[in-house]
Write a protein that binds this DNA or RNA. Structure first.
Lengths: 238, 238
DNA sequence: GAGTAAATTTACTGGTGAGTAAGATTACGA
DNA sequence: TCGTAATCTTACTCACCAGTAAATTTACTC
């Protein structure tokens, strides 16, 4: 066959190669079922190299986590930078998120789906990453709404609520995108923004929608609309 | 305590006891790190019993999955039944969901977080359960909007989009609830409904919100999509 | 071309956990 | 009372996999 001898490669590069493969394998199999042997083999290397460079399986996973999280956050912030209004920054951030996931599906799987049932350190890392994203989004929300709505005392709690809903929706829409390859990240973003933009303002300004009273529905009755009209009229001050 | 001899128990009951424990352990540790030995021990039973009744670790997990999914769907549908308008049904369904998660956190963890990186059969089961939930929600959305908006041609695709966003948001808000124990499921539901109700109509009626044109908007999409046939990239109708 | 540090390998250990064989014990009806 | 079917246990096997010891080879420097 080919006389292709396995060339030696400096540590930095090898590390990245290992992490590249590891992200794929972790995404494919999940943390525990993934074996270091397989990762080493796919990386065209022997197992002790992995341990020499990344310390342990957990260390390897942490490295994957950190690198991919950094990339995602960078994409998010990079898109939002240099954009004037907070509304547009939110748009840009979401758009970048969808584009990122569309292009680096493995990264997203590792970051999100796989990182639950792991040992302390990892769980902490993931939780921190998630908190960071939440904070970022919550900030955009707060700023965006603050500007659009004027000096309204926007409680952090409210912004946090909106951020959670937004991130969760975006995350879930990731699956939807997978089944609709024709959809561009921009289009998905537009739909999502359209879906929540007005509502965000409502929530942050205090709740407006209430479940129409009566009608064996759960909960107390604020008794706002007696006849339970199908669509509670919203203050859509666009 | 001491003199208490271990009574024999008929199969049906033992199975439920085993599943009870398994749900806890799977939720706590995750699928792979969970050991059948531990589950057996906590169930006050020896390992072969588990294999006799549930066939395998995978069978055990599947049993957990099926039971908890059934419970969740039952709660969801039970709440929506006997409610007149679709809008209220959606409200009732979401409310029931939040109440369920608040009360059976382990069930939700098993159903959602743990069920990703597993062998064929399990992945399929989970995917099916998720699809069922999505379909349910999408149906409510379509009906609710259809009634509120009159005879509008609501594409299934649009309803599916909204359903994904809704379910994802609800899922994520689960975490938010954990950090806000004072919040009742009803209140969370109200906020979420307030946030998306108007937007849903917008999305289903065709997109309204568009990123304001020009303004140095995010253009970080250099990679060629110039000839994209499916989605007109810059349909920024002002 | 030595000399040296970095890159890399072969060949192991030890522990853990899924799954099972073979049999012991209890309830329960005829 | 006795049989028998269901319930339950002890005591294994076997494979897989994280992690390591010790050496071996390559590249780079002087």
């Amino acid at each position: 066959m080919s006389g292709e001898r396995r060339r030696r490669v400096p540590r930095r590069i090898r590390e990245q190669q290992i992490i590249d493969v590891a992200v794929q394998v972790f995404a494919r199999r999940g943390y525990h079922p993934a074996s270091v042997d397989e990762i080493a083999e796919l990386a065209g290397i022997s197992k002790p190299m992995v341990y020499l460079y990344l310390d342990s399986k957990e260390g390897l996973f942490l490295a994957c986590l950190r690198r991919e999280a950094e990339r995602l956050v960078a994409a998010f912030q990079g898109a939002a930078r240099d954009v004037r209004t907070p509304e547009l920054r939110l748009w840009a951030g979401l758009s970048a998120f969808f584009a990122f996931v569309a292009e680096h599906r493995d990264s997203w799987v590792v970051l999100h789906r796989q990182a639950s049932q792991l040992s302390e350190a990892i769980t902490a890392e993931v939780a921190q990453a998630r908190r960071a994203v939440m904070a970022e989004v919550a900030g955009l929300v707060r700023d965006g709404i603050g500007e659009a709505l004027g000096p309204v005392p926007v409680a952090d709690e409210e912004a946090d609520f909106v951020a959670h809903a937004l991130v969760g929706a975006a995350d879930s829409l990731t699956d939807w995108m997978e089944r609709h390859p024709g959809e561009s990240p921009e289009r998905v973003t537009r739909r999502l923004m359209n879906m929540v933009w007005v509502g965000m303002r409502n929530v942050l300004a205090g709740e407006i929608w209430t479940p129409p009273a009566g009608s064996g529905a759960p909960g107390p009755e604020p008794a706002g609309t007696p006849g339970a009209p199908a669509a509670p009229e919203h203050s859509v001050q666009e």
